[in-house]
């Protein structure tokens, strides 16, 4: 039971991270379209931001693992 709830928690964390990274991708694409010469800067900042969001999601997933008591 606890395991199933933890799985739902993991799913929610993934939804959150997916929305966040999707938003970054969206705005990065727009930014590149508007200013193609800044593509290098935009790309590395995009990856950095995505990695930070991913970090929050990863902590949530690890917490879910701990709660599930694998």
């Amino acid at each position: 039971m606890v395991g199933s709830i933890a799985a739902i928690g993991m799913g929610l964390a993934v939804i959150g991270a997916g929305m966040g990274i999707g938003k970054i991708g969206d705005s990065a694409m727009q930014a590149i379209a508007r200013q193609p010469e800044a593509v290098g800067d935009i790309r590395s900042n995009m990856i950095l931001m995505a990695a930070l969001i991913e970090g929050a999601a990863l902590i949530a997933i690890v917490m879910a693992f701990l709660v599930a008591g694998v």
Partner: peptide, 8 residues
């Protein structure tokens, strides 16, 4: 998070 990100 550095640790977990690469690992995961």
């Amino acid at each position: 998070t550095l640790m977990l990100r690469l690992f995961a």
